[in-house]
């Protein structure tokens, strides 16, 4: 099946893929049922919402296109104008986690000036640079410029954040959601670049304020597989960040039991079973995930956190049981401190 970003455009081969994945909590009191997913993610009438039940409930909206014509970010500050479209979609995993994912392929265009818009719509998910340029240093300049969020010299570039935010907002405002989520969680953003290369590489940088960057190589896999890898990575990074935050705040050792339970419960109820790294990643890209899991060790950290929560809960339950066994009159849960 051809992916939308496949294209015949460009004088410089595959170009580079750039994208961003934003991850957050779906605004609904209960986990969204599988049969509701098509209604909530049906953002393009006439196009199917793809949904999966195994190994975990997951659904993806149809891909929408967004047109851009702006200067791209370059590390060197060189002006490069890009014209074309981004593909953007929303996904819901476990009926609970919402992602907005946008990407495009940067390619050297043929023209020295802007072509009619229909030319760009014929190459969905491709942004063509105006004017001919040589291949490699130019790609590196664009990739570095895109990943560097602090460089002030560069043009602001394509606003992936706004585009992901837009589609997530559309889902969150769906009439099928009640907008009463059991807990609150900050969003994370993963900005990624993928280049075609026989050499297998993956890099991951944790930034402030939930911002992450990753740089990967792929070798012949379809673009859709690369995007799915990035989405899976973003999903698990968000799960880990959110659980860390819940624990940071919910487990001051001297807090009342009820407060702790109020904070920890949602994590136990809604997040813990969602950890399934690589579930939808194609086999040939799995080694990339696995190398990340070795260093920094996502799963190791996750397991440690989950065990900590279980230990705490077990401990509290024991305390409760022993308290009630003593049969202290007039004492309720709230009054008990560990």
């Amino acid at each position: 099946m051809p992916s939308p970003a496949r294209s015949d455009a460009g004088g410089d081969g595959a170009g580079i893929l750039i994208g961003e994945v934003h991850t957050g909590l779906l605004l609904n009191s209960a986990s969204l049922r599988q049969d509701m997913l098509p209604a909530v993610l049906g953002l393009l009438p006439g196009e199917r919402v793809r949904s999966f039940e195994r190994p975990i409930s997951h659904a993806v909206s149809p891909e929408l296109l967004v047109g851009v014509d702006c200067d791209l970010s370059t590390a060197s500050g060189t002006r490069v104008r890009g014209i074309g479209t981004l593909a953007v979609r929303a996904a819901i995993t476990g009926g609970r986690v919402l992602q907005g994912s946008a990407w495009t392929r940067l390619m050297g265009g043929h023209a020295e000036h802007r072509l009619p818009w229909s030319h760009y719509l014929a190459r969905p998910g491709v942004v063509e640079t105006v004017g001919r340029r040589r291949n490699h240093p130019y790609h590196a300049d664009l990739a570095d410029g895109f990943l560097d969020r602090t460089n002030n010299r560069k043009a602001p570039g394509i606003d992936f954040g706004a585009i992901c935010g837009q589609i997530m907002g559309e889902v969150q405002r769906s009439p099928y959601l009640d907008r009463r989520s059991p807990f609150k969680a900050a969003r994370t953003t993963l900005r990624w670049v993928a280049e075609e290369s026989p050499e297998r590489r993956i890099g991951f940088i944790l930034g402030d304020d939930g911002s992450r960057t990753t740089r990967i190589t792929f070798d012949g896999q379809p673009i859709s597989a690369v995007i799915e890898l990035c989405e899976d990575l973003a999903l698990h990074d968000w799960l880990l960040s959110t659980l860390l935050d819940v624990i940071d705040r919910g487990m001051p050792s001297d807090g009342p039991h009820e407060t702790m339970m109020r904070r920890i419960r949602p994590a136990v109820d809604h997040l813990i079973h969602l950890w399934m790294p690589g579930a939808r990643v194609v086999e040939s890209l799995l080694p990339l995930w696995e190398s990340l899991d070795t260093k920094p060790g996502f799963t190791r950290q996750w397991d440690t956190l989950v065990n900590r929560i279980r230990d705490q809960l077990a401990l509290r339950t024991l305390t409760l049981l022993s308290a009630s066994a003593e049969g202290v009159p007039g004492r309720n849960e709230q009054g008990i401190r560990s």
């Binding site: 957050g24 909590l25 605004l27 935010g165 907002g169 969150q172 405002r173 907008r179 989520s181 609150k184 969680a185 900050a186 969003r187």
Partner: peptide, 9 residues
């Protein structure tokens, strides 16, 4: 839109 966005977080 803004209110919905903030209620998420």
């Amino acid at each position: 839109k803004l209110f919905v966005r903030l209620l998420e977080e």
